[in-house]
Simulated assay, not measured.
Amino acid sequence: MPNILITGAASGIGAETARLFHSRGWAVGLLDVDRDALAGLAGELDGAWYVAVDVTDAEAVRQALAGFCARHDGRLRLLFNCAGVLRFGHFEEIGLDEHARILDINVRGLLQTTHAAFAYLKATPGAQVINMGSASGLYGTPHMASYSASKFAVRGLTEALDLEWRRHGIRVGDLMPPFVRTPMVDNQRFEPPTLRRLGVRLKAGDIAEAVWRQARGPAVHRPVSWSFKLMYWSGQLSPSWLNRAVMGWLSREG
């Protein structure tokens, strides 16, 4: 039975991905800081394994990986790095500690989890890492500057590891959706102009389906939604000044 370990699994995209893979016969492992929500989801998914863990705690992450993979003969077919946080607002009005927290969870947490998973991935034929990227990793997005910076880091790490880990037979890719209707987006107090103009057309279940497709395809980057696919591929061909102009229009205040 193939297995998947999901960080940020207690709600939103992580929880929907857990439900989807469980329904299709995968063994599911759940990691999140929210112990009560994890327990509730694990109760819903018969046989799901879970442990409450902060992805910024390297030793706790290492122990969690060891605990889950010990149940599967030291193997890990798929790691889905979904844990992340977001804050909309003007850069200078957000405290420095909040900017640091975004980078800590979205980048360092992902690094630590992927590093701890390496030995188990290497031991598994067809192993794969899927990182939760973002459309904001294509061009820096105003009013979510530190989040956008974190997703550029995720994109760079994804590209580098996909090349570097070829010798181990491990594929690495990411998902790049625009805004998704999740509690993380719904609970924001500031609405970026970009969100107002583009709207929120994706649900967590749409991203779970993209994870499923990514688990079966060779793509390094998987843009999600037809509108962003068009933006993504045109962005690969367009001059940088045009990409900047489009983002400037989307993010214009007033």
Rank of each mutant, 00 (worst) to 15 (best):
E92W: 10
E16Y: 01
P183H: 02
L76V: 07
G74D: 09
Y120R: 09
E16Q: 14
I207T: 03
F80W: 12
T194G: 13
M231H: 03
I130V: 15
E191H: 08
P192S: 12
L76S: 03
N81D: 10
M247Y: 01
H168E: 15
R189G: 05
L237A: 13
P223E: 11
K122F: 00
H90Q: 13
L111M: 14
Q128H: 15
E159A: 15
S150M: 03
A42G: 09
N243H: 06
I6L: 05
A100I: 03
F80L: 14
I105S: 07
G254A: 14
P2Y: 03
Y232P: 00
D206C: 10
F68D: 04
W212K: 05
R71E: 11
Y50W: 14
D46F: 02
I105G: 03
I4E: 02
G169H: 10
A100V: 05
R71L: 11
L175D: 09
L76Y: 04
L138T: 13
R71H: 10
L237F: 06
N187C: 08
F88W: 09
G254F: 04
A135Y: 05
W49Y: 13
Q63P: 00
G137D: 10
S240G: 09
D97W: 01
G95D: 14
F179D: 15
M144R: 05
R77Q: 11
L96R: 11
S11V: 08
F190L: 05
I13D: 05
D206A: 10
A119I: 08
G67T: 14
A119N: 10
G173D: 03
Y50S: 13
M247P: 02
M247T: 12
P2K: 15
L86M: 09
T194D: 12
T7C: 07
G67M: 12
L96T: 14
F68R: 01
S150G: 05
L195H: 01
R71D: 00
A60I: 04
E98M: 12
I102S: 02
E44Y: 01
A149I: 08
F91D: 08
P142M: 11
T113M: 08
A219C: 05
G140Q: 05
L103D: 06
N131Y: 06
R181P: 00
R252D: 06
E191N: 11
R166V: 08
P177E: 09
S146M: 14
G89I: 02
S234V: 05
D73G: 12
A42M: 07
G137Q: 08
Q188I: 06
V129Q: 02
L31K: 01
P218S: 14
L237P: 00
A52F: 04
G217E: 13
A58L: 01
R87W: 06
A149R: 04
Y120Q: 13
Q214I: 00
Q236K: 15
L5E: 03
